[in-house]
Amino acid sequence: MNHYAFYLANTLLHAYPDGSLWYPSKRILCVSDLHLGKSERIARRGGILLPPYETRETLWRLEKAVAAIDPAKVICLGDSFDDLDAAKSASDETRTTLARLQTGREWVWIEGNHDPGPLDLGLGLGGSHREEFKSDPLTFRHIAQASAQDVVVGEISGHYHPKAAILGTRHRPCFLLDKARLIMPAFGTYTGGMSARQAVLANLMSTDTLAILTGKYAIPIPLAACTIR
């Protein structure tokens, strides 16, 4: 199998090589940090002008992931849109694709720091908007709670776009997993990343954290063995 199966809070989960998370017993598919409309936002704010295709690209990959597994529920773990303007000005194509994906299943938009407002009602993007989502014993929220000590066991979050590598390989997006929590990689195209060995992530995770690399296969390695960048 190309995915990596593990237990968090005694719950079986699958980390997929495309960066999505599968919760088999509840048939939930979770993706984080889609950052739809990113090139449009960067251009709007005076940065580099990228051809505005990455939204389509991200949605294509999401469609593929959804089609492969047919989930009952999809959770988008925050920063689904690069900002609220990007959500407001989502193209017809984006809206149609989302509507198609939402047909026959539940769809949850968790709010993120980039898209704090409600996406469901006012913006007509379907689904339901939540600050966080609990599915006992798991909690889905955008940003992990402050420190490794007071974490609720079973927290699943995104936000940091972790990446990791071992000596001699290139950095790739990864999941970070310890006994208490899971931090997910960004699913969106062009979303960059933060080295998993950086202090801000190291402070969140315990010392025996696993990095699950994405790519062709989901490959688990001890975070301590990853290169520091």
């Binding site: 071992i166 390989t169 025996d208 696993l210 296969y217 490959i219 688990p220 001890p222």
Partner: peptide, 26 residues
């Protein structure tokens, strides 16, 4: 060359690292 050979090596190396960390049976 970032092909299957390297991917296989990475898997091998990752398995070694997991074993070294005592996580081989995780």
């Amino acid at each position: 060359i970032f092909g299957d050979g390297r991917e296989r090596l990475l898997q091998d190396r990752a398995a070694e690292l997991m074993a070294e960390a005592g996580l081989a049976n995780l």
